[in-house]
Amino acid sequence: MKRIYFRVEYCDGCRACETVCRERHSGSRVLFMDREEEPVSSARITVERQGGTYWAVVCQHCAEAPCVGACMTGAMQYGDEGEVIHRVDRCVGCWMCVMVCPFGAVLPQPEERKAAKCDCCAGERRPACVAACSRQALWYGSPEEFEEKTAGDGHALSHYR
């Protein structure tokens, strides 16, 4: 299964990912229009500054996802490839997924009273945030591809413990 990876030393905190994410999840898909929409669309990726570095908080599509376990209505569920999908029609806004997410990647949308999280831009070849990341801090692919891509720079999965 493909997922979004983040490489911390490449990120310069430009927040282009947040902006395109907001655009992609708006009704009009036009950045300049989305503030006029109701409800106002919001990004599902958040860039946080920690000391001198930046960290992008985005759904990790956990293999054993706490949000899927905590969701009482089955809105959070596993997709065909093991990705975590959020079925908005079933969400009742109890915020349990928000409470249990270890990454803070599920965001409450108070206007709609529904949770929102990264859907890897379902239906598109490459998520918008990855396409917009000029420094290639965000990278989209399978774990094997990521390992191959980052071999030697300390990021390869096999280098982890």
Binding site: T46, E48, Q50, V57, P66, G69, A70, V98, M99, V100, C101, P102, F103, G104, L107
Partner: peptide
Amino acid sequence: MTSYVRTEVYRN
């Protein structure tokens, strides 16, 4: 098991 983190209270 899970931990609780929310972006607003991420650092504390």
